[in-house]
Amino acid sequence: MTSKKQIEVLRDDQTTKKWCVALRDDVFKRFMSQGNATVNKVFGDGSLFSPLLFGKFFDPSDAFPLWEFESDILLCNLRSSGQSTVDWFRTDQDYVLKAELPGIGKSSVQVVYNENQKAVEVSGPWNQQQREAKNIINDWRSVNWWEYGYVRRLELPEDADWRKIGAYLTNDTLLEIKIPKKIFDFESNTQENDNVCTKISDEV
């Protein structure tokens, strides 16, 4: 039986120095070389949170203009090998992202919209034990965040209506984010322009 629930989209998260520590390519390689099974699942090939998801290294804590690219192109190699758990596309009405979450931390996944940066982020903890051992409970996003959690930040298109972002979790594994496109009332604008022209004509 399919279970689908809505996730609250948080607004204007003001956490100090959040994502201020950049994940570099060499650091990521050392991190992955530990051979930790959970790390490989969270950040491995095909994961939404992998820095190598788009074919070359890109820090997932930096906002990526996802919907400027076609998923069939960026994910072609992963899909051909059956490794992709991510998809995104646009319709006439919406921008959509679908992704399978890592096997841990899904119950505490957060979706946050940052109005100043026009970006939406998906994040959550994967290493609760490590956070507690180092007494890093609330500010893990301000340090070497990959040691404690995961993130993917996405830049929104200009015509995305961030006020109506919807986030959903199906069977506690599949995340879906849907962002409606702004509706421009062309008829109203046309009528307004006609009224202006009429007023100018009357004055002349």
Rank of each mutant, 00 (worst) to 15 (best):
L66D: 03
G46Y: 02
G46P: 02
C76S: 15
F69Q: 08
W67I: 13
P51V: 11
W67C: 10
G55D: 07
F69L: 09
L78H: 07
W88K: 12
F57S: 05
G46W: 01
L53M: 08
S84W: 01
D87E: 12
R90Y: 01
D92I: 13
L53H: 03
F49P: 02
F89Y: 15
F69G: 06
F49W: 05
S47K: 02
Q93E: 14
C76H: 14
G82W: 05
L75K: 07
S61D: 01
F69V: 02
C76N: 10
L74I: 06
E68C: 14
K56L: 05
F57A: 04
D72G: 08
D94L: 13
L66C: 10
L48N: 01
D72K: 13
S47D: 03
D87P: 00
F58K: 12
P51N: 11
Q93H: 12
F54C: 07
P60F: 02
C76T: 08
W67N: 03
S61P: 01
L78G: 02
F89Q: 06
K56N: 12
F54K: 01
L75I: 12
P60C: 08
F54L: 12
D87R: 13
T91I: 08
L53C: 07
T91A: 06
G55I: 15
D59K: 11
Q83C: 10
A63K: 07
F89I: 02
P51C: 10
D62E: 15
V86P: 01
F58L: 02
F49K: 06
R90W: 00
E68R: 15
I73P: 00
F54Y: 14
S47V: 10
F89L: 09
Q83Y: 03
L74Y: 10
R90G: 04
R90V: 14
P65V: 12
